[in-house]
Nucleic acid binder design. Structure first.
Length: 339
DNA sequence: AAGGTTCTCAACCGCCTATCA
DNA sequence: GTGATAGGCGGTTGAGAACCT
């Protein structure tokens, strides 16, 4: 079909590199108000001299309200290792099972920490195990795939970098969805995987269910992982949904961004979440502003919180402040991006 | 304290897939 | 059925931070 694509934008005249707090706030403010139904058009409409892709990346990898910050917990690392064993470098799929973590973050953590660790384990365990085989979970296709994207190809490779071999073709991609669990000669053996996988289950994906990471599933044998849920304030997604200016798709987009979220952002009936949306929004924005260094004694955009508001962010429902973003942009005046 | 090296991670690049006209 | 376009993904890079000598 598509033979690649033209550059998403004219590269000339656009900002590159690190995002400034101003740009962040502009992006947040825009998405807060209108959602992100169209990334390509977003920068222009938001007054950002950025490529739409860049905006998307920035939002997904850094500004999204449901992101976890900080180091991976041991549990997360273990889950990541297991998932990587199963999926290879399918970072987005792995990310889908690690709520609050982005594919980019996962990729970085893997490349900088876990890869080495697993490689070391491989070196140690190689002494004890000398064979490797692939076991397919898929019940109907019993024959192992010779072209697995994960570590199935070679026997002489000590590669813990199974993902390095993940040059998946289209067919391989299809195969991948059937989930092969490679029995690696290191770290995790089949028993461990089989012990872990089938006994854990994602919650049903009904709207009423709680957070359910979209686990990779096989039509025949569902692979379901019981993964830690991030404590997402449901109201956060109303930040996007709320007042989205009637832009179609904005709501759906937001929900898609956090499929595991407890929030039911597209509930158009005005839910409890909607009732407290403002509180959540304000709490999050305040927190973010602090992080971005926009919350402080800088007079130009210092926001004076509601006297009733605590000086430190607390639980969302108990925080009551005015909209710091609005204040910021009013006080700072029109911001010329990139200047 | 200074300089060099290594590590970390945000951001970019280019390709692929999905969707729509 | 075809081509164009937008979103998404994985690999790579480079600037800054951290660490070492």
């Amino acid at each position: 079909m598509g033979k690649g694509r033209a550059p998403c934008c004219a590269k000339v005249g656009l900002n590159k590199g690190s995002w400034t707090p101003e740009e962040d706030m502009r992006l947040i403010a825009y998405i807060q108000k209108y959602g992100h139904a169209n990334w390509r058009a977003l920068p222009k409409q938001a007054g950002l001299l950025r490529c739409g892709k860049s905006c998307r990346l920035r939002w997904i990898n850094y500004l999204r309200p449901d992101l976890k910050r900080g180091n991976f917990t041991p549990d997360e690392e273990e889950t990541l290792i297991k998932l990587h064993n199963m999926l290879g470098n399918k970072w987005s799929k792995i990310a889908a099972c690690l709520p609050g973590r982005t594919d980019n973050e996962i990729k970085n953590v893997w490349n900088t920490h876990l890869k080495k660790r697993v490689a070391e384990s491989a070196g140690e365990n190689k002494k004890n195990k000398c064979k490797k085989k692939t076991v397919r979970v898929d019940a109907q296709t019993a024959s192992p795939s010779p072209s697995s994207s994960t570590t199935t190809a070679t026997t002489n490779s000590s590669s813990a970098d199974s993902g390095e071999q993940s040059n998946t073709s289209k067919d391989e991609e299809t195969e991948l969805d059937k989930i092969e669990i490679p029995m690696l000669e290191f770290a995790y053996d089949l028993d461990m995987l089989l012990d872990t996988v089938p006994e854990t289950r994602c919650a049903p994906t009904s709207p009423s269910s709680s957070a359910s990471p979209p686990c990779v599933v096989d039509d025949h044998n569902e692979l379901m992982l019981d993964l830690p849920e991030i404590d997402i304030v449901p109201e956060l997604w109303n930040i996007i949904d709320d007042d989205d200016g009637g832009i179609p798709g904005a709501c759906a987009d937001a929900a898609q961004q956090a499929p595991w979220s407890n929030a039911a952002p597209c509930n158009g009936n005005g839910t409890e979440a909607a009732a407290t949306a403002d509180d959540g929004k304000e709490w999050w924005l305040e927190d973010l502003e602090r992080e971005l260094g926009l919350w402080g004694p800088i007079e130009d955009y210092q926001y004076q919180p509601n006297p009733q508001a605590p000086s430190v962010p607390v639980d969302p429902p108990s925080t009551s402040v005015d909209d710091p973003l609005s204040y910021y942009f009013e006080a700072a005046g029109p911001v010329v991006p990139g200047t």
